[in-house]
Design a protein around this nucleic acid. Structure first.
Lengths: 247, 247
DNA sequence: ACGTAGAGGATCGTTGAACGATCCGACAAG
DNA sequence: CTTGTCGGATCGTTCAACGATCCTCTACGT
């Protein structure tokens, strides 16, 4: 009897296997989250410039949602660091300071280099090979976007490349952290003109890095990545400081 | 004229220097945040056990706040990973799985080791020496707590030690990440009896690490920290798996 | 001219109530 | 044993309202 039940359970488990990842699509519904999605798009696309105040009343009215629901959406975006909330003053689109930018790159070098290094230490299972394949796909997408002069796509491909680097560590928490940090970085990129200047030069370096990874040379990949990040930081930091001063 | 204004501003700046840290107490006011503080304490102290459902109605009634305000507090704690939110079901105290525990230690080794390593690479300015001093203070507090058999204090001192390690990197974002991760870890510690077993053996290792740091031997400190984390992980993971299975 | 105090308006913070939607458990029918 | 259905409990969302807070502008006194 007990054995029969166990076998039955096992069969049922096999039947529903592979549906786990679909649960995420099922659970997503809340109005606040959808509002947050809309606002996130608007912010990253520059419709709401940094520093802009997002009035509860006007936006709530425009989107046809109540103030309470809108507040939940604001809170969501606040914890993604896209908005800042000042008591009794409202929410504003985050203004990234130069110090923020430095910290962002500090986190990036810390985490991304550590992720690459962990590849050299741990075992090479199917997870790591899949992660490297994802990185390679991002590089390929970036090359295609560059060829098509689709600079927006190039930007997202570049971000995806770095997300792939982080994924080498195989840690969901680290992935989430870097997702937020890279979203912040996208804010910086957007206020600056000429995305090509900031992404195109790094295509060949991305390619070099992924080749080193595929060759299993984690140390070389880390070296390349470190100099990549240092160059990117100094270039972006300088340009951003100028941009801030110009206001 | 302009010079006078500038001098005035400078003087005013000097006057308010040292009040920076008080702003946190000033700016904090919102009812939702205070409610979140209360609930956070209750959760970490074990009043709400993992898996418990937090009813909006009952808690809102008990605390005398409206459902909408309580929801904002829930959202706060959800983003700290202390609660999980299931649509149309409510919020529950987070149940840390064994996979979560593994991920927590993955993040810890990644970040803490990288933070220590960064000490060996960057310059030794007053910030890093202050950070090392903070770590030493945490170790000393832990030793005092152990001597007084104040196991709760020992636990917080140990957490503070690791927060100090992370602070070596000098990155606010990294600090915040690890604050959340270590808070999760506290959840694990709390469901397990005998905190002494999990903290006391590491006192001497903490002392060794801080001595290596004070001697400027970052490589040795990293080695010690790595083996520390590995031992801690395997011990805790095993005990926690047993504890889960016993339910 | 300068600094300060106060009035007014706009917006936020919070509450309470309400209605529909969703989930869960129990019970009955196949 | 599975499936369908029903009712209760709870959540999701909206709305209206009031007090609290902040910002701006004006007026006053020195």
């Amino acid at each position: 009897m007990a054995g029969g039940v166990a076998k039955n359970d096992q069969r049922r488990l096999a039947e529903v296997a592979g549906l786990e990842r679909d649960r995420a699509l099922l659970g997503r519904a809340s109005t606040a989250e959808r509002v947050a999605d809309i606002l996130r798009d608007r912010i990253t696309e520059g419709y709401f410039p940094p520093g802009a105040r997002l009035s509860e009343e006007s936006i709530g009215g425009a989107l046809g949602v109540s103030r309470n629901t809108l507040r939940e959406a604001f809170r969501l975006l606040t914890h993604e660091r896209l908005l800042v909330h000042e008591l009794n003053r409202g929410v504003f689109v985050r203004v990234v300071t130069v110090e923020d930018l430095d910290d962002i790159y500090r986190v990036r070098t810390l985490v991304e280099c550590a992720a690459v290094r962990s590849l050299g230490e741990g075992p090479h299972d199917e997870r790591t090979t899949a992660a490297v394949a994802a990185i390679e796909a991002a590089v390929r997408a970036g090359e295609a976007a560059s060829h098509d002069r689709a600079w927006q796509d190039l930007s997202t491909a570049n971000i995806r490349f770095h997300q792939g680097i982080v994924a080498l560590a195989g840690s969901p928490r680290t992935d989430e952290l870097m997702r937020g940090v890279l979203a912040e970085l996208r804010l910086v990129f957007h206020v600056m003109a000429d995305p090509r200047r900031f992404h195109a030069p790094y295509l060949t370096r991305n390619r070099q890095i992924v080749e080193a990874l595929q060759a299993g040379d984690a140390a070389e990949a880390e070296r390349l990545l470190l100099s990549y990040l240092e160059d990117s930081r100094s270039q972006l930091s300088g340009a951003y400081a100028q941009h801030i001063a110009r206001d």
